[in-house]
Simulated scan of single mutants.
Amino acid sequence: MQVKQAPEGFVRLHDVDPSIVEEIRYATPHNFTGDPVPGYDEPMCVVTRPLADALHRAQQQVTAQGYTLKVYDCYRPQQADDRFVEWAKDVPDQRMKDEFYPGMEKSQLYSGGYIAKDSGHSRGSSVDLTLVRLPVPPQRPYTPGEPLASCAAPVGQRFPDNSVDMGTGFDCFDERAHTDASGVTGEARANRDRLRDVLTSAGLEGYENEWWHFNLPQEPFPDEYFDFPVNSAAFR
């Protein structure tokens, strides 16, 4: 079967900066749906070239401070966003509630803006990421069916991420995940500020509801939503 090719202007982040850690959650079952998401054929970060260049600039800054960037999600095929919308309507499927949306009803996720039909990720100019201290510690793998802990629980009680403490886990549908949440203080607040300051100085903009989400303001494809797969074959 012929694989749809990535448009000119998209790159694999590894080809621009192989030092940035990639843990593409939607290629695995460890995400709010509980299954690998359609379109993520490989755990690979794909972005537009301007976003890759911005991330490279940010990586140079954080490595000088003893950290590395770690990306969770980059370009997202439109079929993945379509799947998220379908999943949000499938109310009986609550497999991952205890970790990702413990304090919310699943029916509220779409109307509350946590899940959107159209996303900057599908334009290749949004990225979800965090900071990890150097040298990079090992990341414990997720085992499907294991007991789940709230993403909003204190560090040490929620799923162990090898990143620094940001106050919540990634993709946490909770008010504590809001970038300026008042309940997030101390080390977690300092870590959020460090991530924001580095990425904004590299030319990106944050999103108030998710500390991990950043956008490229001057994106090259502002009105297009792509659906080529996250697959090495798309770059041949």
Rank of each mutant, 00 (worst) to 15 (best):
A152G: 07
E105G: 15
F100M: 05
K89F: 11
S122K: 09
D35Q: 10
P50H: 02
R196H: 10
F221T: 14
V37P: 06
P222C: 10
G145K: 05
Y101M: 09
P138V: 08
G124C: 05
P18K: 10
P154G: 01
V127L: 00
E208N: 14
F170T: 11
G145S: 06
L69H: 02
A58R: 04
P137D: 08
G203S: 05
A188W: 03
T200P: 04
D174L: 08
R176A: 12
Q79S: 15
I20T: 05
R192P: 13
Q78K: 14
F159M: 04
G145Q: 07
D193V: 10
L204K: 00
P77S: 13
L55M: 08
A234E: 08
I115P: 08
D53K: 09
Q157S: 14
V37S: 03
T130G: 15
D165S: 03
M1P: 14
P154L: 02
W212F: 13
R158V: 05
D81N: 15
N31M: 11
F32L: 14
F84S: 02
S126Y: 02
T68L: 02
Y67S: 06
V46K: 09
L129P: 01
V46R: 04
F32G: 02
G120R: 11
Y142K: 05
P147C: 07
P138H: 06
P138S: 07
A27H: 11
L129F: 01
C45N: 00
